[in-house]
Design a protein around this nucleic acid. Sequence first.
DNA 1: CACCATGTTCCTTG
DNA 2: CCAAGGAACATGGT
Length: 309
Amino acid sequence: MPELPEVEVLVRHLAPLLQGRRIAGVVVHRERVVRPHRAHEVPPALEGAVIAGVARRAKFLVFDLRPRQPGLPTRLIGHLGMTGRMFLQPKGREVPRHAAVTFDLGPDRFIFEDTRYFGRLTWDDRCLARLGPEPLGDDLADEAFARALGRSRAPIKVRLLDQSVLAGIGNIYASEALHRAAVSPRRATCRISTAERTRLLRALRDVLEEAIRFGSTLPLDFAGTGARDGLFYYGRVGVGPTEPMMLAEDSTPPDSMSGHPAHPEVGNGYYERLRVYDRDGEPCLTCSRPIRRIIQAARSTFFCPNCQK
DNA sequence: CACCATGTTCCTTG
DNA sequence: CCAAGGAACATGGT
């Protein structure tokens, strides 16, 4: 579920649930996820710690800890990779097949689940040191954005995905922001005009903020227990046969037929949230000419060749 | 069987 | 030094 807005929504959801809870036990089901630590190092490092708070930095979740004794880690850093999820479950329920790490919190269990195991959970904080500025931070003024972009000749889309340039932009919102700013994803970064750059920063913030606002009000299925359309993203919800449901700690699993029907007009207003992503061949919502899909840095980019020059 | 997937990192080639 | 391409990680959906 990862990209800045999804992580932000998740953090807001988790913070009140985890604050003040004590970690009674930890089980590492997939050693790869706690790299560079070893599985056996994890329980002695974390057990007995109290979770003091949860925050976000770029696409990372940062859990502040009060360790049981000095010298032990004071924060845990999580990354969801492509398919990571985090949620609470009552103990006694079966842990999901792809649980990577589980925490015993007493009455319930905090689960980091990740089908592809690209995610991470670590107290090695070097990953945070390499990050560029937060796109939503007040500190990121126009000049700071210009400085971050630099004089690179790389295509702007590829540049936006570089976490050391700007932290938190992923493949979906990069395409979305460029479309809103009417800048071609292929444009060399150093050939973006001042006006375009200003538009782009604005578009980035708008896209991210809207997604957060939207995600905060949307019934989300953090546990992934509901039938899904495969994306878990806000934008295509309503297209598929079901709609994700909110799952606080332990709400009842959604009955799969209770979602809105698949008609866009009946829909829930989510239908047009993503204007270009995953819309290859569909008409651009501004000019109605077809959206195109191209490959940049081995990843799909979607854009309107007519609107974005 | 084919191809695709929200992410990151490392390696090679130009 | 930089850009671009590919592969790797691992699993599942269409």
